[in-house]
């Protein structure tokens, strides 16, 4: 959507009445726009079995989570608190993917105990996960393919020295851990 469409959509929301009622500074969200973006993504990928996991770090209000839950979305959570918020909103644990970075192993254990899916982005944690759970709990790994994308240098997180993800060049190491730990 272009900025001019965003502006006319915004102007259709009777902003002056909203300001009069709620005051400023104020965050307003157009729920219908959120729903239409969700549908747009689903339609674009209607040819595959698509699962959208909304990254709630973008906007965590429980009502927005519920709005997306109603559309059939899952959640991508990056902290145990985001996991808890998702559960409070009514998402089933299996619909929540937990993708933290630089967390203590205890936080992964807490997530497993809540029944959410765990996405591991560090070889050290993958080893610890293997020691504790073996093949009893499935987990995902977050691979960094080192494709540098991103609007500003601050959010370019795919580079070789990024703290995010397990490097795609370390797949052999990952496979050895999987074999040894029967992950």
């Amino acid at each position: 959507m272009s900025i001019s469409t965003t502006i006319s959509r915004l102007q259709s929301l009777s902003l002056s009445k909203i300001i009069e009622e709620f005051g400023t500074p104020l965050y307003i969200y157009d729920g219908n726009k959120i729903v239409s973006q969700y549908k747009r993504l689903n339609d674009a990928f209607s040819g595959v079995k698509l699962k959208v996991k909304y990254a709630l770090k973008a906007c965590n209000n429980i009502n927005i989570l519920r709005l997306l839950l109603k559309q059939g979305s899952g959640l991508d959570a990056v902290s145990i608190q985001e996991v808890q918020l998702g559960l409070m909103a009514g998402f089933s644990p299996s619909e929540i993917l937990f993708t933290p970075n630089s967390v203590a192993f205890d936080e992964l254990v807490a997530a497993v105990e809540l029944g959410v899916q765990v996405n591991i982005d560090n070889i050290s944690l993958l080893e610890q996960f293997g020691h504790k759970y073996g093949s009893s709990i499935p987990c995902c790994i977050r691979i960094n393919p080192h494709i540098v994308a991103g609007g500003t240098s601050h959010i370019q997180t795919g580079h070789i020295d990024s703290k995010f993800g397990i490097s795609i060049h370390q797949m052999r190491h990952v496979l050895r851990i999987i074999e040894k730990e029967k992950l």
Binding site: Y27, Y29, V48, L56
Partner: peptide
């Protein structure tokens, strides 16, 4: 299954901060 984890795509354009 094919998964995505969109944040900005779903909510960025929906929101505005109103200030005086």
């Amino acid at each position: 299954e094919l998964w995505f984890e969109p944040g900005k795509f779903l909510v960025s354009e929906s929101g505005a901060l109103l200030v005086n």
